[in-house]
Amino acid sequence: MADFAANNRPFAELDPSGRTRRLRRLAEAALTAYDVPVARLTPLARGLNTTFRVDGADGHRYVLRVQRPDGPGVARVRSEMAWLAALRRETDLVVPQPVPTRRRDLATVVADPAVPEPRTCVLCHWVEGRFVDERLSAPQLYAVGEFTARLHLHGARMNGLDRGRVDDLTEFGRSQVDGFSPAVVDRAVARAGGDERVRAAVARARAVRAELGCGADVFGLVHGDLHQENYLFHRGRVRAIDFDDCGFGHYAYDLAVTISGLARLPQREELREALLDGYRSVRPGAAETDPAVLDTFVELRRVQQRLR
């Protein structure tokens, strides 16, 4: 009786493991769209999206991502996959390689009666490597800086893709023409319990954005979430995953995200300088490495995380 009740419980009332079990069936249906012989499907650590490791009978390994219902729509997910495909085709940067469906689509939309809404799903080849956190070293962050600069050089050429801004405030902000409008900021302050420091931080970010402008030398398509859970190392090389938050923004914001991720590490200042040195080795004199600009975007990132 308990299993019957669980199987018939509304999706919203299920705990995370119960939702993953439902989404597993949807994932199995999504995989039928691909020419991949599946041997095993294993849930991975659940974030905003739900991901599964796919071990293929062909000896290859993949990651299937089931998109969250309130995330980017299918057109924007296809744009994310198009950037990844272009990066794999046009650079030697190691990022997830999208697997097209039998119909040559970079995404598939699947419905299941046990899940309230259709879900966008994508399949990518597995990226080998190891994550490093407390033991991050200056040479590793130098390499991350180089990688980020090269990513930005490519992102500067990708202006036609359908992706939003990475620095908007809250879900409401992303739905507005101006993600920093007075109405957006008022809602953000209210959500932060009336903390006016949010308004001040946004005002500083607005001023810096205006000063930088939106030329291709300072603004373009960026990763948007490049912290140490999204970059990894393999045989001395940096690799990046999870481009789900990619979008248009200032390159300084992308660097600020990486810097913010280092905040709790005792060697954070050394790592920050190594990151920027690596970045400047590819893009010397870049305005986004200015300390005042970076600190403003680090503060903005903290506000965004607080409001999630």
Rank of each mutant, 00 (worst) to 15 (best):
209 R>S: 15
199 R>W: 04
219 F>E: 00
224 G>M: 00
223 H>Q: 07
192 A>C: 09
191 R>G: 11
224 G>C: 03
221 L>P: 01
205 A>R: 13
214 C>Q: 13
193 G>V: 06
190 A>T: 06
194 G>F: 08
203 A>N: 13
206 R>P: 06
224 G>N: 01
194 G>E: 10
214 C>D: 15
202 V>E: 06
203 A>W: 06
206 R>V: 12
216 A>V: 13
216 A>I: 10
208 V>D: 07
226 L>Y: 02
209 R>W: 13
197 R>D: 09
223 H>C: 05
203 A>T: 07
189 V>Q: 05
226 L>S: 00
214 C>P: 09
216 A>M: 02
218 V>M: 00
217 D>M: 08
190 A>G: 10
202 V>Q: 02
193 G>H: 11
199 R>A: 14
196 E>P: 04
189 V>K: 07
191 R>Y: 07
203 A>C: 09
206 R>Y: 08
221 L>D: 02
211 E>L: 13
226 L>H: 02
205 A>T: 14
218 V>I: 00
208 V>F: 15
221 L>Y: 05
218 V>A: 04
222 V>E: 01
196 E>L: 05
209 R>L: 15
219 F>H: 03
208 V>L: 13
217 D>K: 01
208 V>E: 14
208 V>S: 13
206 R>T: 15
205 A>M: 14
204 R>N: 08
216 A>F: 08
226 L>F: 09
216 A>E: 10
202 V>T: 00
210 A>C: 12
217 D>Q: 08
203 A>Y: 09
218 V>C: 03
221 L>G: 01
219 F>M: 00
222 V>F: 04
211 E>K: 13
198 V>L: 04
201 A>C: 12
216 A>W: 05
210 A>S: 11
199 R>N: 08
201 A>F: 08
193 G>Q: 12
209 R>Y: 12
206 R>I: 15
195 D>H: 09
200 A>W: 12
194 G>M: 08
223 H>T: 02
212 L>Y: 06
211 E>V: 10
214 C>E: 15
